[in-house]
Write a protein that binds this DNA or RNA. Structure first.
Lengths: 166, 166
DNA sequence: TCGTGATAGTTCAACTTTCAACTAAATCAC
DNA sequence: GTGATTTAGTTGAAAGTTGAACTATCACGA
């Protein structure tokens, strides 16, 4: 098969501006939010895990599901859980319905930790981000990024599936 | 001083939606872009370093400046440079004007690597992000995120300075 | 009921990132 | 000038992350 070189479609100035503004702001923003959480001995990723756990019925979620909703790999979750378990924030319980599985369970201490961290984190998200958006901005952003996410999911499905026709 | 507990201003549904949409999309997006670069043995962070270097006059930049424009810590840059140096993509040269300093210099091999990776990366940025935005979206995004960045910078200056009045 | 393949979760080794400590040179204040 | 401070950059150890290999269990079809 002859591989034909396709001339790449470079970004025009408007596209470039949007992309760079986004990427720079995102880097800085995440950095700032992480720094703001430092006082609670939490990273954004750990916060996300605890927040998801605290939201679940009985504050317990299967490991796999937790990994998925907190957007971390199973391996990473396993490691972080070990750390957070040592800190006394979570506990693991064997799953009776499925003996391969286990439950991630939030302890009282973990609950207290997240309840204490949440107001500061929300304030930080406001200060650094949300309060600088108008209502319209918020709606626009949500629309745009939902589109991006669903597109990513579609592509992922495309890639995972053997593909009928592309 | 009596510390008074301030009732946190939680996010309303619109704000929450915007924030979550943004954070979820961003995580997934970065993940996808990183995965797309894997074929070139590059991470987004390394790509950024090489891209900045390739843009500089004579493809050479002082280490500190490179760290700043590529948005990585000096320590991290130092470590990555060692790896990329081993790969033959960059080289370090001593700085004659300031003997503490050193230049990061892109080699021909590095140039070839980035020239080869760039079209794929741009395609990936398009596929995953830019092509899903209208021109208006692009302008809105740029405006919003520029605002976020400048705000972050202002806050940072605030924090760094001893503060006259806050 | 057996075997085959998928799923849940952990672990290990390799790699990356962070943070603090460090060297050396430049700059500043007097 | 000279001592104090700042700046440039690197280093080493500790902590975090990744991806593949692994164990155990489950689910399904013949």
């Amino acid at each position: 098969m002859a591989t034909k070189k396709i001339e790449p479609r470079w970004l025009n100035p408007r596209e470039m501006k949007a992309w760079r503004s986004y990427i720079v702001a995102s880097r800085r923003l995440l950095e700032a939010l992480d720094a703001d959480l430092l006082g609670h001995e939490l990273s954004m990723a750990d916060y996300e895990v605890l927040a998801q756990l605290s939201d679940a019925p009985d504050r317990r979620v299967r490991m796999s599901e937790l990994a998925e909703i907190a957007m971390v790999s199973k391996s990473r979750l396993s490691h972080r859980m070990k750390v957070m378990e040592k800190a006394g924030w979570v506990r693991r319980e064997e799953c009776l319905e499925d003996k391969r599985g286990s439950w991630a369970v939030m302890t009282d201490k973990g609950w207290k930790a997240i309840v204490k961290a949440a107001p500061d984190h929300v304030a930080s998200v406001r200060n650094r981000f949300v309060d600088h958006l108008t209502s319209k901005d918020q709606e626009d952003l949500a629309k745009i990024f939902d589109r991006v996410t669903s597109q990513l999911r579609d592509q992922f499905i495309d890639e995972a599936a053997p593909a009928k026709k592309r």
